[in-house]
């Protein structure tokens, strides 16, 4: 099977996968936003109703999903800045791959402490001795 010419197209390379990830995270975050505006609207019903719904956010499983949400938002944010750099920086297209590697590095550096602080309470209650 002949190979398609490489080098000028995104297809199959990291540029394409970052585009896929940008779409997927964007759609996920958009659906969460709908749910989040609905749950916050419960402050207009009563404090008890609101507190009951917010308590689901404190559940260990949901807490883990929140780490996923923060990860999705953080990736989308960093990759969005990379897209802006590709569009507006003169050498943006030439360095799009290096910018992606920098972005992923920054993502890990920010995500590790964020996940630690987000999951600390859940870990302490599930496995802690206190």
């Amino acid at each position: 099977m002949p190979k398609a010419p490489a080098g000028t197209l995104y297809r199959g390379h990291v540029g394409m996968w970052s585009w896929v990830a940008h779409r997927v995270t964007g759609v996920l975050v958009f659906f969460f936003l709908f749910a989040h505006v609905m749950d916050t609207a419960l402050v207009r019903v009563s404090p008890d109703t609101y507190d009951k719904i917010v308590d689901t956010y404190k559940n260990p499983v949901v807490n883990l999903l929140e780490v996923g949400l923060v990860a999705a938002v953080l990736f989308h944010a960093l990759n969005g800045l990379r897209i802006i750099a590709i569009d507006f920086w003169r050498k943006g297209t030439r360095y799009q791959r290096q910018m992606l590697y920098a972005e992923v590095t920054l993502f890990v550096i920010l995500m590790v402490p964020a996940a630690f602080f987000m999951l600390r309470h859940t870990f302490l209650t599930l496995f802690g001795t206190a």
């Binding site: 402050v43 404090p47 609101y50 507190d51 917010v54 956010y57 404190k58 807490n63 929140e66 923060v70 964020a114 602080f117 987000m118 309470h121």
Partner: peptide, 11 residues
């Protein structure tokens, strides 16, 4: 993330 995160949220 800060100050115990989601655990401290309520009305």
């Amino acid at each position: 993330v800060m100050d115990g995160g989601v655990q401290r949220l309520n009305f």
